[in-house]
C-alpha cells in the first residue's frame, strides 16, 4: 500500500503517512539489532553506533517512497553501511575495526556461553564508564544505560523533574561518548 503512486486527497495522504509510520516500526522491530550490530562493528563506539542506527532508520523513513519493497533487509543494510562509511570518512578513519577488537567488545543476545561472556564484558565496560562520571550523572547513567530503566521510572525513584532527568541523561551520554572514544 505504501508503494503505490501518490494521488491527490488529504485523506489518502494521511493514510499513507500512517502506513509509513507502521512500516518504520516494523523495520525497527525486525532489523533494529542487526543495524545496531553493523554500526557498532564498523564505528567501534557504542554511542556512535546508536546515532548511526537512528540516522539509518530516519533515512529509510525519508526515502520509503523510493523503495521497491523487494528486499528490505538488504536495503536497510545498505543504508546502514553508507552511514557508517560517511562516519568513517568524516572521522578521518581509513581502518575498519578488525575482528579481534570487535569481538572483544561485542555483546550478543543469543543463548550460548561464549555470547553470554561477551555480553557480560560489554555490560562491565558500560558499568565502568558510568562509574567514572561524577554525581548526579553517575546515578542517572547507571540507571538509564546499565540498568535500562525508563525516564518515568527514574523520575519516580528520584523525585526530580522530567526535564531535569532528560537533561542529565543527555549530558551523561555526551560524557560517556567521550570516555568511550578515549579508551
Amino acid at each position: 500500500m505504501i508503494f503505490q503512486t501518490r494521488s491527490s486527497g488529504r485523506q489518502e495522504e494521511e493514510v499513507e503517512k500512517i502506513d509509513c509510520d507502521n512500516y518504520l516500526e516494523h523495520l525497527i522491530n525486525a532489523y533494529g539489532n542487526l543495524v545496531f550490530s553493523i554500526c557498532f562493528r564498523l564505528a567501534g563506539s557504542y554511542f556512535d553506533a546508536e546515532d548511526l542506527t537512528q540516522d539509518t532508520f530516519l533515512s529509510a523513513y525519508k526515502n520509503l517512497h523510493t523503495f521497491d519493497g523487494k528486499n528490505d533487509k538488504a536495503w536497510v543494510c545498505r543504508i546502514a553501511t553508507n552511514k557508517c562509511l560517511d562516519y568513517l570518512k568524516r572521522a578521518g578513519r581509513n581502518v575498519v575495526p578488525m575482528e579481534d577488537t570487535y569481538f572483544n567488545e561485542v555483546q550478543c543476545n543469543k543463548p550460548s556461553p561464549e555470547e553470554y561472556v561477551l555480553e557480560t564484558d560489554m555490560k562491565q565496560e558500560l558499568y565502568n564508564l558510568c562509574s567514572h562520571l561524577k554525581p548526579p550523572y553517575q546515578e542517572i547513567a547507571l540507571d538509564y544505560f546499565y540498568y535500562e530503566k525508563d525516564i518515568s521510572e527514574i523520575v519516580k525513584q528520584s523525585g526530580k523533574n522530567v526535564k531535569t532527568i532528560q537533561t542529565q541523561v543527555y549530558r551523561s551520554k555526551i560524557m560517556l561518548r567521550k570516555l568511550w572514544r578515549k579508551e
Partner: peptide, 28 residues
Amino acid sequence: AAQYAGFIEKQAMIKAPHYLKDNILKKS
C-alpha cells in the same frame, strides 16, 4: 549487502539500547 547482513546475524548480534526505538519514532 544481504550476504553481509546474514553474516552479522550468524556471528553475533548486539542488542540495541532500549530507548532507541522510541527515539527514532519520536524523531520520525
